[in-house]
Design a protein around this nucleic acid. Sequence first.
DNA 1: CAATACCAAGCAAGCGCTTGGTTTGTAAAC
DNA 2: GTTTACAAACCAAGCGCTTGCTTGGTATTG
Lengths: 204, 204
Amino acid sequence: MTQDAILRSLIADNLVSDPSGARGRLLREAARLFRDKGYERTTVRDLAAAVGIQSGSLFHHFRTKEEILKAVMVETIRLNTALMQAAMDKESTCYGKLRALIRAELEFINGQTGEAMAVLVYEWRSLSEASQLEVLELRDIYEQLWLDVLSTMKSEGSLKAEPFVVRRMLTGALSWTVTWYRPDGGLSLDGLTDQVVAMMGLTK
Amino acid sequence: MTQDAILRSLIADNLVSDPSGARGRLLREAARLFRDKGYERTTVRDLAAAVGIQSGSLFHHFRTKEEILKAVMVETIRLNTALMQAAMDKESTCYGKLRALIRAELEFINGQTGEAMAVLVYEWRSLSEASQLEVLELRDIYEQLWLDVLSTMKSEGSLKAEPFVVRRMLTGALSWTVTWYRPDGGLSLDGLTDQVVAMMGLTK
DNA sequence: CAATACCAAGCAAGCGCTTGGTTTGTAAAC
DNA sequence: GTTTACAAACCAAGCGCTTGCTTGGTATTG
């Protein structure tokens, strides 16, 4: 199943918005604005202007501004969880699976969904508590993929530290790449993945 | 030189505010509010109420709200750079120095200056470009301490990866601990430091 | 001809910051 | 040891502007 097929399947199930539709386009622009200026500094007028409509017209698609933020986060997690699951299923060894997870997350953070991933990290506090709980449920599914692999590696002896500590260190290290890594520099995404794996003292 | 002596020395040179003074108290409350609610969501009325004055009275101490944010960042970097330098100078080996740096930064992030350190990471975009440049200069001094040690280790062969990549991975991993690490849990700061060092494949 | 998508206008609330005047702390002058 | 002088710290009030969101009406589409 290709990445595109996964996206189309999620669109068909109404789990993520079609990027070419009105709603999808707005969410993409919203992610970009939220990352560049922050959620609070981005006004509904900014959002409307980005897709070429009046600010009031936004509220036919979303009831509140916060609902837009939540949608950005929810759809991003849904898509990336599915993509990550697929990337992992292609691998047979634990080492291969972990490398696939790292490679996939680096791609989420520095690729197409980079804006939305940054929003997920930096704008968490701007979500109401109710929305946070909702998004957290989806996030738990995503995190469980990591913990399963890391736990197996721990019990096999190829990992010394605690799986949940390792995952958290990786979360920080990988998401921070958004502040400095540029794909067009001298380091490819595969090269970056190599450095992360090497840093963990892992060998194939 | 004790940590307290370093603080007093900086206060005497007017590089950081006395925490017991009016200005210092405000900056501490500001750091807490900015971390908890974000800079934009924190109003000047919130800030004033936190130290028991009227909102207008704030502007006798700071010309703008942004100046408060900048002061939080600047004073934090000044203090922590001095503390870190002192912690490093006590060590003679590169391994010892790096461990001291990691240990110190974990302490900054999860100890007394934790609120301010989180602000430094999460509220960077809320600074005007002019202020960003100003803070960046101080930050460079801080970062150079890390790069010097890591570069020496690289040339000695005890570090395989690129120093600047390693530093950036560490920045992300360590600062992310603020979202999950609790000192009163089962893991001490020294234990956490051990896990980081072990994760890097380093041995004494 | 209904439903959907949108516009033009604007409201109520909250924002950062200003203003003019009062209190408080301090230290020299008498 | 009281008085005088003065600046720093603060208050009460509110201005001008921006914000998220609403409203009533008009195109567009199947």
